[in-house]
Structure formats: C-alpha cells, structure tokens
C-alpha cells in the first residue's frame, strides 16, 4: 500500500524542502520506490536541492493540465533508481492547483510508488492545503522558536480539520514532529526552545531532531541531499528519521551540547 506523506510547517525557511529531499532520498536508499513532489509553485527549489534542475522539462502543473504525461514529467534521480522528482512550475500561478487535478496525479502515482512525499509551500493558502489534503501521514517541521511552533500548531489544526481524511471522517493523519536547525548551545543559553518545551506546546510524536549544521548549506549548493553526507550530524539525524519512520527504534542523538574536550577547555573554543 502506498503512502502519501506531506512535509509541512506553516512557516517558511524552517527546512521543509531540505527535509523532503533527504527523507525521500533516505526512503529510496532503503529500497522503497519513492517520488517527491514540489508543491511550491513559483518558488521551486526542490529540484535545485536534488541537483536535477537542468533536467526539468515538464512540471506538476503540466501534468494536471494534461499538457504532459506523468512519465514525461517525472525526473529520475541520478544516483538512486528508485527515486523520482516531480518538479513545480516556476511560471504558473497558484490557481493551477485544483483538488481534482492533484487527486488524479496522486492516484496515478499511488499505482507505482511506495511513498509519495509532498514538499509543501509555506503559509496556509491553497498550495499548502493542496499539499496536505491527500496525506496519510505528516512530517511537521519546526524550528525551536516560538513563532515557528505557533505556525506548526496552526498547521496541525488544519491537518485535523481540513484534510481529506478529516472531511471524510476517516482515521486521522498520523502526525510526526521534526525539529530542525536545532542548536543545543542556544537551547542551553535559553535563546531557543528546548525539545521539552516544544513537545509541551504541540504534543505530537517526535520523529527526529536535526541539528543546525553548515553541511546542510554545502549539500544544497552542490545539489546533493544532506542525508547522503554520512559524515555530517544533520545527515545522520535524517538517516535516523527515515529508520524511525520505517518502524525501527533509534535513540535520539544530537540533543546535548558537545562537552568541551581537554584541548578546547585549555585553549578555548
């Protein structure tokens, strides 16, 4: 049975696209046939982060409008043959999305993919609603700050009230929390909310904590999802997320500030 997973947050710039790219890549690396869809019409950048921007010919909106087939629009990843990208349109306006159109495409994808990952745009407008509407599960991406948590709360309310599952009274969307750009030092100094604070406010299952790391930016710039950088803490944290999603028990990492070693203690950081 295929699963539709929306990566959403309400707020922009929190790491949805970064998470979508790494999560989808991780599922494919574990042998699952996966497609990741960019719902961010006009601001497409999933293809950049996935390193396939030059190969974009047709996009999601072309498929909805019947101007291209899914087969023509899907881009196969260079390294993982189980991974596909359905890019967003850069030029179309947001009204291109209709419920019926999106549903048709998702239904068709369900026939041949195990996982359909939907990278949501920011906000709570049509694009974001369309990205979450057909979801079976949701990765809610939050940064450890009050405004981001508030927006995630809002999105959780929408998942519970305005999704297809909610409207049809089906079993609710399974919600998972991913805290990204987490900096233990800044939590300790009180600048950022702790995982406990966030959990208190949102009260949903924590699926992973992705530390703030420079390797994310480097990875995006080179068009390689950070999960493929197994040396980086963020890459490892995303790997943990994928394993937890697939049902394995993996302890949380990267929650505490690094203890300063002898060298650093003597000579300063």
């Amino acid at each position: 049975m295929s699963k539709v997973i929306v990566v959403t947050s309400g707020k922009g710039g929190v790491g949805k696209t970064t998470t979508s790219a790494s999560f989808a890549t991780g599922l494919a690396m574990k042998g699952h046939k996966t497609v990741v869809i960019d719902f961010d019409v006009g601001l497409r950048n999933l293809d950049l982060i996935m390193g396939c921007e030059r190969r974009v010919v047709y996009d999601f909106v072309n498929v909805i409008n019947g101007e291209a087939t899914l087969k023509q629009a899907l881009i196969k990843d260079k390294t993982h043959d189980k991974l596909f990208i359905l890019p967003a349109s850069q030029t179309r306006d947001k009204d291109a999305f209709t419920k019926e159109g999106v549903e048709k495409v998702i239904d068709e994808l369900r026939e041949s993919f195990d996982y359909i990952v939907c990278d949501s745009p920011a906000g709570i407008e049509k694009g974001a609603i369309m990205a979450l509407y057909f979801a079976d599960e949701a990765l809610v991406v939050t940064n450890p700050e009050v405004s981001s948590v508030r927006d995630s709360d809002r999105i959780l309310g929408i998942l519970a009230a305005k999704s297809k599952r909610a409207e049809e009274g089906a079993e609710p969307i399974k919600e998972h929390l991913i805290v990204t750009r987490y900096s233990p030092e800044r939590v300790e100094s009180g600048e950022m909310l702790s995982i406990e604070d966030i959990n208190d406010l949102l009260g949903i299952n924590l699926m992973g904590v992705i530390p703030e790391s420079e390797s994310v930016l480097q990875a995006s710039n080179s068009g390689i999802p950070v999960i493929r950088d197994s040396q980086s803490s963020s890459g490892q944290a995303y790997d943990d997320v994928v394993m937890r999603f697939l049902g394995e028990e993996v302890p949380m990492r990267f929650l505490d500030a690094e203890k300063k070693g002898l060298f650093k203690r003597i000579f300063g950081a």
């Binding site: 709570i124 709360d153 809002r154 309310g157 929408i158 406010l201 009260g203």
Partner: peptide, 23 residues
C-alpha cells in the same frame, strides 16, 4: 484546540480535555 481554531458550545457548557493553545 490549536492556533486558528475556534470552538463554540452553543446553549451550554464546554468541556475541553486537551490543551487550548495560543491563538
């Protein structure tokens, strides 16, 4: 009850067994 949501108990009491969040 999450940010942006509103619950109205018309004609009676309201009992909430979960957090009523900011907003």
């Amino acid at each position: 009850v999450r940010s942006g949501q509103q619950i109205y108990a018309q004609g009676g009491d309201l009992i909430v067994l979960a957090p009523v969040n900011a907003g």
